[in-house]
Design a protein around this nucleic acid. Structure first.
Ligand SMILES: [Zn+2]
Ligand SMILES: [Zn+2]
Ligand SMILES: [Zn+2]
Ligand SMILES: [Zn+2]
Lengths: 163, 163
DNA sequence: GCAAGGTTTGCAACATTATAACATTTGCAG
DNA sequence: CTGCAAATGTTATAATGTTGCAAACCTTGC
C-alpha cells in the first residue's frame, strides 16, 4: 500500500483520490456493502481536497452536476461512508474529510490548520492509549474519542512571518 | 479551594453551583469583566446539572422565567462565558457545560456518558502534552485542543448489567 | 422469469443550531 | 451633564441536520 502524502505541500492529489476510491471499493466488496454511484460520488467529492467539506457543500456540488439531490441524499451517503470508516466527521467544523487510514480500525487525531483549512489525520496509538487510560482511571468506559487540534500547519507558520 | 464532586454520584449539587458562581464573580472582578445579571443567570442555568445544556435549552429556561430573550441573548452570554473560561462548548453535542477548573488555564478533556448524559471534565496535562508533542512532530503548531470521550460512566456501566 | 422482501433513493416538510444587522438602552469617564 | 463604549433588544435569516413516506431498485428463492 503506497504511503500518504502530506496535505499541506503540493502533491499529486489525483493519486490520493484514486487510492482512496480503490480502497473504498475493496473495503465495501469485502464487507458486502454497496458502494452505489451516489455514495462513491460523495466520497470522491469529499476527497477533492484535504479541506473538510460541509454536507451542504457536497450537496451544492451534486446539484450543480445535475444530480437530483436533497439534504437526506447527502447525509445518508455520509452516514454510510462513516459507518464503513471511509470518511470522518470533524465536530469542530461540522464538516467531513476522507479517512486516510480506511480499514485500519483506528482513532483519528486531526490537525486542522486555521489558516489554510487543510486537515492531516494522524493515527497515534500512544495518544489514544493515554486518553483511554485517563478515562479508565475515572472508572469511565471509553467508546469513541473526538480529538481535533486546531493550529497552524508548517506552511502557514512560514507565511505568518511575511505579514 | 474545595475539591469538586464527581458528577455521576449524588452529591450536594448546590455547592457545585454556588462555588462556580463565586469563582466566576471573582474571576470577572479580577479581569474587569462585567458579569451582568443575564450572564450570571445563564451561567447558573448551565450549572443546574452536570449534563451539558444546548443554547436553546438555556433560552427556553430564560423565557419561561419571563426574561425577554432571543437567541442572540443566549449566544452572546455564552460567548462571554467561554471567553473568560467559565463554560466550555462540547462540540460533539452542540451544548455547553460549566467549567470545573475556571481560572486554571487548562485544556479540558471531557468524559461524556452516552447513557445518563453527565459530563466529567478532566485536566490531564500528560495527555495534553502527548497530544501537543504528536502535533509538533508533524511540524504543526497546536493552539486549541478538542478532546471529548463518549462512553459509559461508572454508574451506567452497572445499570447495563440489569437489562 | 417472477414474486416477495429488504435496501436505497426521491421528495417534501420540518427541526435545530447559530449569526447578521441595526436600533435602543445602560454604565461609566471626563 | 454629556458623550462614548459596552451591552442588550429585536427582527430576520443563515447554516446544519432530521423525519416520514412513497417510489425505485436490487437480490434471492422459487
Ligand atoms: Zn492529496
Ligand atoms: Zn495551513
Ligand atoms: Zn454537582
Ligand atoms: Zn452515565
Amino acid at each position: 500500500m503506497p504511503s500518504r502524502a502530506l496535505p499541506y505541500r503540493p502533491h499529486n492529489h489525483d493519486a490520493c483520490v484514486s487510492q482512496a476510491l480503490a480502497e473504498a471499493r475493496a473495503i465495501c466488496q469485502q464487507q458486502n456493502a454497496r458502494l452505489t454511484p451516489t455514495r462513491e460520488r460523495v466520497l470522491e467529492l469529499i476527497w477533492q481536497s484535504h479541506k473538510p467539506l460541509g454536507a451542504y457543500d457536497v450537496l451544492a456540488k451534486l446539484t450543480s452536476e445535475g444530480h437530483n439531490a436533497a439534504p437526506p441524499t447527502v447525509y445518508r451517503a455520509l452516514d454510510f461512508l462513516q459507518q464503513y470508516g471511509l470518511v470522518h466527521r470533524i465536530a469542530s467544523l461540522n464538516a467531513f474529510t476522507g479517512c486516510t487510514h480506511a480499514g485500519e480500525h483506528h482513532t483519528g487525531m486531526f490537525l486542522i490548520c486555521r489558516a489554510c483549512g487543510n486537515v492531516l489525520e494522524l493515527m497515534e496509538s500512544s495518544v489514544t492509549t493515554a486518553i483511554e487510560n485517563a478515562a479508565r482511571a475515572e472508572a469511565f468506559q471509553p467508546e469513541a474519542i473526538t480529538l481535533e487540534v486546531a493550529g497552524l500547519c508548517p506552511g502557514c507558520q512560514a507565511n505568518q512571518h511575511h505579514e
